[in-house]
Design a protein around this nucleic acid. Structure first.
Length: 440
DNA sequence: TCTGGGGTCCTAGGACCC
DNA sequence: TCTGGGGTCCTAGGACCC
């Protein structure tokens, strides 16, 4: 909570639809709906002309067609949206390095990091107007809504108050007067489930929320949300604007036009998603340890299964194999509506690094070769959950931990002198763990 | 033709380690 | 002689956001 209104939230109005109207003049002034246009699609963005018919985000497209049959229904051109977003974020970063993007069309700016001496209400209002003018220039005509306040929370609420194309500055000291009459649902993080919990204890407005003790809120909503809401009800928020946030997961998912039952088809679809997700990993020069399979069944129930590998990977076949194994754990006989594959536990180095000498010629001297392999293992020791010695028909080798589903073994003995990497299913009867090496 | 796709954060229980 | 306690990792599900 600052004494000056120096946090700015900016949101491009009806972003996807506005880009479409910009690029296709015949759509201007008309209802435009961007989103899934298939039978199971939902609306991502509706232009203000379409909103007048009651169309809004997250509405099934079928319902949107009923409400506004004459709208243009578009699947979306994400390349164009990303390009426009990039231009806007670049503009923001030219003003202050403290830019926190929330999505393609939204960001926080910390004006304390900008070259702006007058942080009075009139000062920041003038700044906001100039910023909107420059957004219009770099986007080819898009409008934005700006909220400015003494915290992220207040700035975000403020930007909602005068859409589209508005500017709202909340003067320091006025925060609670603004919030008290509002519904609790205006608080970011209060969705339908939380609102229902609060309704049951008689809370509808922020003023009513303010009357509830922190103990009671924690009892009803849990520690994290209870404490957070207790503070927000009092307009207390000191979260900083964070410029660089690293990705925590990368995933791909698809909802199918009809439910799929065929096992082989499901496996093939899973493979394709593994290929997509690993391609994105490699492009981002990332790799990850945990593979998650997501399945939505015919009854809309959603299930996830995950497995954590001994080390990070960006390899398509590895991810595909794990995903298939996880698929096998679920009963899909009733029909699958959605499949997804994700990778988390991201590391910013590439798996190739692990096995650089996989194809290298082994050293002539077996002791030297063993020393090389051991040195390699020792270097990775920090993330190896366990270094086990195993043996099978290939001889003796070292296990890279004990991930569920897949075990990767590196052999460095006479039977496999090249230090080849071999993989086994975890339940492979040919694989016997004989002992665990002592801790370093 | 009910309910997308890409994310983040939180919770709770169990395993495991010291 | 009968059952610790904290910390961390992993998994599954849920709520929420744009």
């Amino acid at each position: 909570m600052r004494s000056e209104p120096s946090i700015l939230h900016i949101d491009l109005d009806a972003f996807f639809a506005a880009v479409e109207q910009r690029d296709k003049p015949s759509l201007r002034g008309k209802p435009v709906v961007v989103g899934g246009i298939g039978g199971r699609g939902v609306v991502a963005t509706a232009s203000y002309e379409a909103r007048a018919f009651g169309v809004h985000s997250a509405m099934p497209t079928a319902e949107a067609r009923r409400r506004c049959p004459n709208a243009a229904f578009l699947a979306g051109r994400f390349h164009a949206y990303r390009e426009t977003s990039h231009a806007v974020m670049t503009l923001f970063r030219s003003i202050t390095p403290l830019v926190e993007p929330l999505s393609l069309d939204e960001a926080f700016l910390d004006l304390a990091g900008a070259d702006l001496t007058d942080l009075s209400v009139t000062g920041v209002s003038g700044f906001a107007q100039e910023l909107k003018d420059r957004v219009r220039e770099v986007t080819g005509g898009l409008t934005a809504s700006v909220g400015i306040g003494s915290s992220k929370f207040i700035a975000k609420i403020a930007s909602e108050l005068d859409k589209p194309d508005g500017i709202v500055v909340v003067a320091p000291g006025m925060e609670q007067d603004l919030l008290r009459p509002m519904q609790v649902t205006v608080i970011p993080g209060v969705g339908p489930a939380t609102a229902e919990h609060l309704r049951r204890i008689g809370v509808h407005t922020v003023a009513e929320l303010e009357q509830i003790s922190v103990e009671e809120l924690v009892r009803v909503l849990g520690t994290a949300q209870g404490r957070s809401l207790y503070q927000l009800a009092r307009a207390q928020d000191d979260r900083p604007v964070v410029a660089e946030r690293e990705a925590k997961s990368i995933s791909v998912e698809d909802t199918y036009e009809t439910d799929h039952v065929d096992r082989r088809l499901l496996e093939a679809l899973t493979d394709r998603q593994a290929a997509k997700v690993t391609e994105r990993l490699r492009k981002a020069r990332l790799s990850g340890r945990t593979v998650t399979l997501k399945v939505r069944l015919h009854d809309f129930s959603t299930h996830t299964r995950s497995a954590t590998l001994p080390g990070p990977t960006d390899d398509t076949r590895t991810v595909a194999r794990v995903a298939r194994t996880l698929l096998g754990e679920l009963d899909t006989s009733g029909g699958v509506r959605l499949l997804g594959v994700g990778v988390s536990g991201l590391a910013d180095w590439i798996q190739d690094d692990l096995f650089t000498d996989t194809d290298a010629e082994p050293a002539e001297d077996p002791d030297e070769e063993t020393a090389t392999v051991l040195a390699s293992l020792t270097r990775r020791r920090s993330w190896l959950p366990g270094l086990d010695v195993v043996h099978d028909e290939h001889g003796e080798g070292w296990v890279w931990g004990s991930g569920r589903g897949v075990v990767t073994v590196r052999f460095e003995t006479a039977a496999s002198p090249t230090g080849r990497v071999l993989s086994f299913a975890a339940d492979d009867p040919a694989l016997h763990v004989t002992r665990t090496a002592p801790e370093e």
